[in-house]
């Protein structure tokens, strides 16, 4: 018997504890197959998962491993801090074991100078020229400083970095960053860690339309529907951390985000119906009995 690939798989739904990274494939083979056939490229590397995971905010390395595996991510962000402030090698052992690629960030930098130096240190430590460029201009909102950001992006591109630029949702700035040679433009949906979702979806759609490099929605995701919306707006991927790591059940939320990104991507490709002011019946009026 041929299985309907779009049929829901309620019979396989489960409510027990999650176990490892195979779960999504068991739950939704149709989506998994679609995902496998829909790879995308970042800085010359091909990925099948469109979910980029930030690692900050988890209580333990055991939970990090479970979250990484449940999310299906192939790319995670990491940071550098003074040795006294960090707890040994365990995080790198977990990430090595999971086989994910690393995207070091410049979190906490306030100036282009500081961000460039941090990127150079990250290249030395992690042996990658990929960097998530973050140059913060305001303590309360952690919003990017556009002037310093563009300056740092230009410098880092000249130094041979693959720059993933964390930016506001301004389509003009996005285009300037893409023109500067950034490998990807990463607009925020709302402030980092706020969980406010995508406050200006139209800006994200405009930015998507304005650049030809990959667009990764970064920051502000609060729950699965936000991640799905990002994909429906045409983003190539979603980067999130707090929404998973600070959820009551991070592992379950990681799986939710994985499926939301897949669902949003599928919906984008499927083409949504136009919005209507009034209703349009979905059951034919022809043949209606008179009762």
């Amino acid at each position: 018997m041929q299985k309907d690939p779009l049929a829901p798989h309620h019979s396989q739904a489960r409510s027990g504890p999650l176990q490892g990274g195979q779960l999504t494939d068991e739950l939704v083979p149709a989506l998994a197959a679609e995902e496998a056939g829909d790879p995308f490229t970042l800085a010359g590397e091909t990925f099948t998962s469109r979910l980029v995971l930030g690692t900050g905010g988890l209580p333990s390395m055991e939970s990090l491993e479970r979250v990484v595996r449940a999310s299906g991510t192939q790319l995670v962000t990491v940071a550098l801090r003074r040795v006294e402030a960090v707890a040994g090698n365990s995080m790198m052992q977990v990430l090595d074991r999971c086989g994910v690629r690393l995207l070091p960030n410049t979190a906490g930098c306030r100036t282009a100078r500081e961000a460039v130096r941090t990127a150079e240190l990250a290249r030395e430590a992690f042996e990658t020229d990929w960097v998530k460029l973050e140059v913060i201009g305001d303590e309360q909102t952690l919003l990017p400083d556009a002037v310093e950001l563009l300056d740092a992006a230009e410098q880092l591109v000249l130094k041979g970095f693959q720059v993933f630029a964390y930016t506001t949702d301004d389509p003009v700035l996005g285009r300037r960053l893409a023109d500067a040679g950034c490998a990807a433009v990463m607009p925020l949906g709302s402030p980092i860690g706020s969980g406010l979702g995508i406050r200006n979806p139209h800006s994200i759609a405009l930015l998507r339309d304005a650049v030809s490099v990959p667009v990764v929605l970064d920051a502000g995701i609060g729950t699965a529907s936000d991640a799905a919306l990002a994909m429906e707006l045409g983003c190539d991927a979603v980067l999130l951390a707090s929404a998973v790591t600070r959820a009551r059940d991070p592992e379950r939320m990681a799986l939710a985000m994985r499926q939301a990104v897949e669902g949003g991507r599928l919906a984008r490709g499927a083409g949504r119906i136009p919005r209507r002011f009034h209703a349009q019946e979905s059951t034919a009026m022809a043949g209606r009995p008179e009762l």
């Binding site: 905010g57 988890l58 990491v78 550098l80 801090r81 003074r82 240190l121």
Partner: peptide, 9 residues
């Protein structure tokens, strides 16, 4: 400055 990897978003 002597720096080491840590978790981050």
């Amino acid at each position: 400055e002597v720096l080491a990897p840590t978790a981050g978003g």
